[in-house]
Design a protein around this nucleic acid. Sequence first.
DNA 1: AACTCGGGGCA
DNA 2: TGCCCAGAGTT
Length: 214
Amino acid sequence: MNAKTVIQISILLDEMYPHAVCELNHQNPFELLVATILSAQCTDKRVNEITARLFPRLNSAEKMAQLTEDELIPLIRDCGLFNNKSKNIIATARQLVALHGGSVPQTREELESLPGVGRKTANVVLANAFSTPAFPVDTHVLRVSQRLGLSSEKTPEKVEADLCQLFPQDQWIKKHHQIIFHGRNLCKAKKPLCNICPLRNYCSLFLQESGIKS
DNA sequence: AACTCGGGGCA
DNA sequence: TGCCCAGAGTT
């Protein structure tokens, strides 16, 4: 992948998604952490509906740590995998109180040591709550990056390394959100809307499919 | 690298 | 109904 192509793709992403930002509603790092844990295999819209009635009362680790798993489950029941998520959120809140004075740590290592927090969630919190350069890679970013030829790697970690090298550090989180929007709206896993996609001339999937048809 | 977890959205 | 999804943990 040459530098000129990356710049052209970057310009097109800026034109297509000029206001791409984190859509998870949050007022502080703890709220973002909880919202991000809830967002696994669930839409942001649904997560925001849940946190809108969750955070007025449970907006800190201290308050969340006092709940039991069974008390939290009915409050987050609408977002899937709620057994795991409830257990992880309670355990994480208690770990924050026990080891970090009730605040959210700002290093990747400490974040990933929290139950239910993996590399993607840690990167989301680092970038959106602490302005620490990070490039969260989820299934959308993975798929779009592969189709656009931004990375030929298959694991999230290696794709993340490629993306971090291709884009300037101060653009990482913006590119993340732009690619997320693109993956959700046009470059969908199934039935991608290649016919109206401004990026299709850079896309291996489109070039491959149009080659077969013609 | 593959499997588990096992709800919601959409065709 | 059937299939995939803005993941993480375990094997």
